[in-house]
Design a protein around this nucleic acid. Structure first.
Length: 296
DNA sequence: CATAGATCCTGTATGC
DNA sequence: TGCATACAGGATCTAT
């Protein structure tokens, strides 16, 4: 599913294929795809039509394209199955085509395709976000991602170690650190040899630092691989191609030997989904009394 | 306020 | 063959 590296690949495709082009028409085929847009499909189309698109930007799993009115941006989130495709106008409609955006040059269209409709597009006002400049309203409330040069490592480590919850849940909290989803959370925890249910407020500073380094490394490596896989007329988007070629150490590997110690990777239920981990490399710490005060 | 759990959605895979 | 169930899982809403 699209997490930070996959979304970054999409951003690059968008930047390449839509920057500088002017919107001719917008068709919303499924209202749910713009449920985040405040005033419905007609307003969505009217705010976009005639606008020229700037270079796409990204924070975490959010994408946005500033408009030339300098007050709004087209914001996108892929959810779990969303795709942004660049297609010739005469290409047959995809089964799950939700939104079509055509351009005044008569060239390729931008299509939002989404089977499960957890993703969507919206036009939002830009708001001031300090050093980051102007960002869309819905982006302002999430944290920077670890590949952002302005990501504040120290602030993150402090906030993480103040959370009274399991470390995996904290990693998935987009207001602490953005861009990490279920797959990269499991991979990061495996690398850092931490159990996902390890209480966040009982992780020592060095181990928390190791975890952040692991998250950054795994997403950087995935981006390097995912970036190789799109062809000219098809802005790859759901990350599937990159995803399959990636080497996963824990995620989805239930029953497979841990690449470090050969113990079988275990799957457990977590937040209506799954967590994968090595029970030997990533043991759950003992009860709090034994550890109280350690690492403080 | 912080945290935990339910919910949205649809296609695919599996079990009986 | 057909039906039921589990699963995939981001973000958000509701409950505690």
């Amino acid at each position: 599913m699209p997490e930070l590296p996959e979304v970054e690949v999409v951003r690059r495709g968008l930047e390449r294929w839509t920057a500088g082009r002017t919107v001719a028409a917008v068709t919303t085929l499924h209202p749910r795809a713009i449920r985040r847009h405040a005033n419905g499909p007609a307003d969505f189309a009217s705010l976009l039509t005639g606008r020229t698109l700037a270079a796409a930007r990204r924070r975490g799993k959010y994408l946005w394209v500033p408009l030339d009115d300098e007050q709004h941006a087209l914001v996108g989130h892929l959810g779990m199955s969303g795709q942004l495709l660049i297609q010739p106008p005469d290409a047959e409609d995809e089964t799950h085509l939700r939104i079509r955006i055509s351009f005044t040059d008569g060239g390729t269209e931008l299509r939002f395709v989404d089977q499960r409709t957890f993703g969507g597009l919206a036009v939002e006002p830009l708001v001031d976000d300090g050093a980051a400049g102007l960002v869309p309203h819905s982006v302002a409330h999430i944290a920077r991602d670890p590949l952002d040069p302005l990501f504040d490592d120290r602030a993150f480590l402090t906030a993480l170690r103040a959370k009274r919850t399991g470390v995996k849940r904290a990693l998935l909290d987009q207001t602490l650190i953005s861009g990490v989803g279920n797959i990269y959370a499991d991979e990061s925890l495996w690398r850092a040899k931490l159990h996902g249910e390890h209480p966040a407020d009982r992780i020592t500073k060095p181990r928390a630092t190791t975890l952040l380094d692991a998250a950054r490394a795994v997403m950087t490596e995935a981006l390097a691989v995912g970036g190789t896989s799109f062809d000219s007329l098809y802005v790859n988007v759901n990350g599937q191609s990159g995803y399959f070629s990636r080497a996963l150490n824990a995620y989805g590997q239930a029953g497979q030997p841990c690449p470090r110690c050969q113990t079988a990777i275990q799957r457990i239920a977590f937040m209506n989904r799954s967590s994968y981990f090595c029970p030997r490399c990533q043991p759950l710490p003992r009860r709090r009394d034994a550890q109280r005060g350690v690492g403080q």
